[in-house]
Amino acid sequence: MRKPTHPTVYLRLLAGAVLPAFRDAATLGRALDGRPRPGWRELLLPRADDLQSEAVARGHTGLGFGMALRGAAILAARDSVAQAVLASAPDGVARFQIPEIGFDRWLELTAGGLRGGRGTPPGAADVTVCFPRYRTALAALRQELDTMAAIGAGELVVTGVIPLADRLNVVLERMADYFPIPKAGPPPPHPARQPGRAQPERAAPVAPSK
């Protein structure tokens, strides 16, 4: 559900999280070997076609998560919705890892305030959020991931103080209220429910369901 945003918070996020990501995207674009080399637009605001490129998809995933984590600290300090969520979160250190792309960062929550950094956190992580495959992280970034199902299937591994990860996730998702990710349109009507159409053939179920 979209929640109200605040212009001053928007400006701080722009200055503190989004603009640095543009700088990082430019650096990353120059460093990547892709032909043609991706620019900041492909890396930060990729179209669906852009994400077919491994280089763009990997770069976008790292930059997007980096931007969200930087933004989380700003939201914790400035945004009332994030503050309300974090008020019910236990203090602690959360580590975020996407090994396939070398992403390893942390956030530390102390009395409602967040600070973050790269690499090994200042103390032992109370919770670790690890995406074994970066494509899963990309889906999460684009809000296309059923997180609960992914955890149950082992595609997303959350170990430790789950309530801390849960609340931080809400704050990370809050970024999308300020900087909405273009969503695909509504799904087409189910073929079986379109009037006047024959029932399509369906694949046999894996096992009898009844």
């Binding site: 059923d146 609960m148 199902a149 955890i151 149950g152 299937a153 082992g154 591994v157 959350v158 789950i162 894996v206 096992a207």
Partner: peptide
């Protein structure tokens, strides 16, 4: 796990609420 894979295709979260694997030992 096989049931969960089937469930995840037709049920949000696969299993939701307090019996979700998320809060146990996935």
């Amino acid at each position: 796990r096989r049931l969960f894979a089937r469930a995840s295709r037709v049920t949000p979260g696969g299993i939701y609420g307090h019996t979700s694997p998320v809060v146990a030992v996935p």
